[in-house]
């Protein structure tokens, strides 16, 4: 419980700054200090994936990182997915395919899918399933989510080729 540290990071394209104890988890810092409650805590041991965000462009468990480790980093949380009031194609497709019910795992699911599509813009079903297996969902039985990622991937590819 040593002195709190100054943490400055870029979240959803905006520089934010606050102080936190060195032991404070990144997810707690996001939720409590920056007011970004869209990122959820489901297990605090890196399995359920609900807290997944992007750190410097890659998916990471914000429950397995300390806030101080993210000092200077660039983060994307679920609050940053929609741009200018327009849903991201993944968000649109989740809605169309009923890829969410309670919505608790959804932020982690969306960012995991986002990460997949950055690395692999044309994943097949097996690759989608493998990537999404990083996040647990207990409502949907996953099929709607898998279909949503397929749809979003197709639309994103079409948008790029236009």
């Amino acid at each position: 419980m040593s002195e709190s540290r100054r943490i400055r990071l870029k979240v959803n394209c905006e520089w934010r700054e606050s102080r936190a104890a060195p032991r404070k988890l990144l997810v707690d810092f996001l939720r409590e200090d920056l007011g970004l409650t869209g990122t959820h805590v489901g297990c605090e041991h890196g399995i359920c994936g609900a807290c997944t965000i992007l750190v410097n462009g890659e998916a990471a468990r914000s429950c397995l990182m300390l806030a101080v480790q993210a000092d200077g980093a660039e983060l994307t949380t679920v609050e940053g997915l929609a741009a200018h009031g327009k849903l991201h194609p993944l968000q649109e497709a989740f809605r169309e395919h009923h890829g969410l019910q309670c919505g608790f795992c959804t932020p982690g699911m969306l960012l995991t899918a986002y990460d997949l599509l950055c690395v692999n813009p044309a994943p097949d079903e097996e690759e989608i399933r493998a990537a999404l297996s990083a996040v647990l969902c207990r409502c949907t039985g996953y099929l709607g989510i898998i279909e949503a990622v397929k749809t979003a991937a197709r639309r994103l590819r079409e948008a790029i080729s236009k």
């Binding site: 869209g38 805590v41 679920v78 997915l81 929609a82 809605r95 919505g103």
Partner: peptide, 20 residues
């Protein structure tokens, strides 16, 4: 019919017990 509930949940604006 697409769900009314979805928009806040998809954009991180849901209000769960830990968010109150």
């Amino acid at each position: 019919v697409k769900r009314i509930e979805d928009l806040p949940l998809l954009t991180g604006r849901g209000v769960f017990i830990a968010d109150l």
